[in-house]
């Protein structure tokens, strides 16, 4: 067992990003897809904080602060959109929302 370095954190971040991507591509519930998106954003945050720590700079942490704020705004708007879709179509399922599919 060795002391964790930047690479360790980046591996965790990359794996988490892949998990989120899998969720976005494979799950069919709009809400779970949205949660997977949050997982991907969090993976990016982890990578930024790790870079910031191992480079002795705070710029990465400021970036993460901004990302968290934008993610919160995005969640609010996205969930309002999902509720609006549900009100109109009575479904929150990706396969039922294929009007634009070629």
């Amino acid at each position: 067992m060795i002391t964790p370095t930047l690479q360790h954190y980046l591996v965790v971040s990359g794996l988490l990003f892949c998990l989120g991507l899998l969720g976005v591509l494979a799950r069919r519930n709009l809400l779970v897809v949205y949660m997977s998106l949050e997982l991907m954003l969090n993976a990016a945050n982890l990578a930024l904080v790790a870079f910031s720590h191992f480079n002795n700079q705070l710029n990465g942490q400021v970036m993460v602060f901004f990302i968290i704020t934008v993610a919160a705004a995005e969640v609010a708007v996205g969930l309002a959109l999902i509720v609006a879709i549900y009100r109109k179509r009575q479904t929150a399922h990706v396969e039922d929302l294929s009007s634009l599919k070629f």
Partner: peptide, 27 residues
């Protein structure tokens, strides 16, 4: 917890408050 290990204490607190608190309640 990982953020705390990376000595980003403020971000750890914000993470718990904003994500685990506000965003998940919204979800």
């Amino acid at each position: 917890g990982l953020f705390v290990l990376l000595q980003a204490f403020f971000l750890a607190a914000v993470q718990v408050l904003v994500y685990a608190g506000a965003v998940m309640v919204l979800f």
